[in-house]
């Protein structure tokens, strides 16, 4: 059943015709590596996101929000689990190797999980702005994704992230209609999270980006980023909050918002595990991983 292709041209022709690659196909190594690295980063991000969400379970105000935080934690860890399984099936690294690389700071996860959430307002800003950015990126991958196992899991992840978006909107509406103190807390969070959320999309796509060429991504980073800006800048302003971009401008001709020049240094730092909260996050994940080794050993023992 496994398919083979004689050369890269034939393989790319297959992808351009809308072909879907399955796990047992004899795909070119460069494709296998590129897809694996992409899924590994997604899995790492779900896992680190789940741990972040977990930090807030005891601190979340009110039962309604607490239930949503509990569920999001399980969702993110569950997504990470599914993605690690799909990534491991590609035969490059085992799940344990991927987790060990993550704990050793050798592999990447999204920039937003390298920052600290200071207040509940930060959690609201994350659920509202960051989840929307992550969802937009994932939707653009799902739209045209050439790797079958990833595509099928993305469909479910996107549906669940859409649900998180609604929870984020619910949280935002509540804090936006709250007391002056609540509004101040949210504005402070926005000031911290606007730029990291925007940078989740990454710098402009390179002309030769293989992820676009091989139909993993379907849209250029700058296009997705711009859509997010056009949606969230006016929405935040309509709720009475200010957007922390000193050069923010509205172009009457194009009817578009421009956030001005973007400083990509913070993103570069996070990709090298040097973000403001990277060391603590990775350290806690590592302590958590080591502290639960007894459970994995017990499970492995009982599985034989």
């Amino acid at each position: 059943m496994a398919r083979t292709w004689t050369d890269m041209d034939e393989f790319e022709g297959f992808l351009n015709d809308g072909g879907i690659v399955e796990v047992d196909d004899d795909m070119p190594d460069v494709y296998r590596t590129a897809v694996f690295t992409f899924i590994e980063m997604h899995a790492n991000s779900e896992y680190m996101g789940g741990l972040t969400e977990r930090d807030w379970i005891p601190k979340t105000p009110g039962l309604r929000h607490k239930m949503s935080v509990l569920a999001k934690t399980q969702d993110e860890i569950g997504h990470g689990h599914l993605l690690y399984m799909v990534a491991a099936d590609m035969g490059i690294k085992t799940r344990t190797e991927m987790l060990e690389d993550l704990m050793a700071g050798k592999s990447r996860f999204h920039n937003v999980f390298h920052y600290k959430a200071e207040t509940w307002g930060d959690q609201v800003a994350i659920a509202f702005l960051v989840d929307a950015a992550a969802l937009a990126s994932q939707q653009a991958v799902f739209k045209n994704c050439s790797y079958g196992p990833y595509r099928r899991i993305l469909k479910r992840i996107i549906s669940e992230e859409g649900f998180h978006m609604r929870l984020g909107e619910d949280r935002m509406m509540r804090i936006a209609q709250g007391t002056d103190t609540q509004k101040e807390i949210f504005q402070g969070a926005l000031d911290r999270w606007f730029w990291p959320a925007l940078q989740l999309f990454g710098p402009d796509s390179k002309p030769n980006d293989v992820l676009l060429r091989w139909h993993i991504k379907s849209e250029r980073n700058e296009v997705l980023r711009d859509k997010w800006v056009q949606k969230f800048v006016p929405m935040l302003q309509s709720y009475g909050f200010s957007v922390p971009a000193p050069d923010l401008a509205y172009d009457e001709d194009t009817k578009k918002w421009d956030v001005g020049p973007i400083d990509w240094e913070p993103l570069k730092k996070t990709l090298a595990q040097g973000g403001p909260d990277s060391a603590r996050r990775i350290g806690e994940a590592k302590a958590n991983w080591e502290g639960t080794s007894w459970a994995r050993e017990a499970l492995e023992g009982s599985a034989t």
Partner: peptide, 17 residues
């Protein structure tokens, strides 16, 4: 799985998660 009402299986025939 990602929710209390779901578990994670693997297909023994085609390996799908």
């Amino acid at each position: 799985g990602p929710s209390r009402c779901r578990s994670v299986h693997r297909c023994e025939a085609c390996t799908e998660t």
